[in-house]
Design a protein around this nucleic acid. Structure first.
Lengths: 153, 153
DNA sequence: GTACTTGCAAATCGTTTGCAGTAAC
DNA sequence: GTTACTGCAAACGATTTGCAAGTAC
């Protein structure tokens, strides 16, 4: 939750505009779902988003959350993260970035790297077809899990 | 299915040995499941593996296939592939390699790259914890899907 | 007013599990 | 003989869908 409120409001305005552009109706639920996601750095799953939104919109149903997240992902307004086959997790950050994933607790954190941004599509991959995007994630043990392990040994 | 039969037999022997090492029983079904996977370059899902094995072991149940694949993955004898959240797909290739994934048809192909092997864990990722492994995939449109698109336009 | 959305409940689908019989070691 | 493995059927959990009522535009 280290996202500043100005940043959130900026993103909300951009979101309203993006919806208008696409003929997507700006409903209360949709706004709050997006706000919940864009306010978080945790890459929450549908259920966590639903819980969060219910603090403000107690009557929202899980289906609505699922439907909106799916639709927003199809419109390219959010993305689906997680290589693994756990439940779906979402990300409102659409800038070029990478993920650190903790193999113990499942934490996912964004990071940026100019070096990685500069990687060219490898010729070995280009041989299979036309590359579009390159995804990279670093798996490891996060600081929290590391200290837990240290203290118990 | 470009895997030579000598290669397959080599892998089967190694597999029998790996099972013996771990006290895992070498059952007919387990051998055929592994053979099916190691003979394929398609990164099949559980269902496709089941279909394939049934040509040789008609009575095998889907549960057995699921159970074995899961168990083999836990023992590190095979791996689970696919960043996406479709059904699970498996890979008997345990060498360091990368994937090309077709965004249209879901084709997954292995490729190798010395350049990518040499990538260091980025400092930005190390900040979050102790990195263990780095995964990379290239998404794109495969040759087959490209020609389909070309011919229909 | 119309088309898109919502909330509800029921369905779907891949995957997992409990159990009794069977096979590997 | 013991222990792990198989096949069956039933369960599971995340996600999706059909439908009637509600809301944005």
């Amino acid at each position: 939750m280290a996202v500043s409120s100005e940043m959130i409001e900026t993103r909300m305005s951009a979101f309203r505009e993006a919806c208008a552009c696409r003929g997507v109706k700006v409903t209360h639920q949709r706004l709050e779902i997006y706000r919940e996601l864009t306010s978080s750095e945790e890459h929450p799953d549908a259920d966590a988003i639903c819980q969060g939104v219910r603090n403000r919109v107690p009557t929202i149903s899980r289906d609505t959350v699922y439907r909106n997240l799916k639709m927003l992902a199809e419109h390219g307004l959010i993305s689906i993260v997680g290589m693994s086959h756990e439940r779906l997790r979402f990300d409102a950050n659409m800038e070029l970035h990478y993920h650190f994933v903790c193999v113990r607790c499942g934490l996912i954190r964004d990071f940026y790297s100019q070096n990685l941004d500069n990687i060219d599509f490898p010729a070995e991959a280009v041989a299979f077809g036309d590359p579009v995007s390159l995804h990279l994630e670093v798996k490891g043990v996060c600081r929290t899990c590391r200290s837990l392990a240290d203290s118990s040994s």
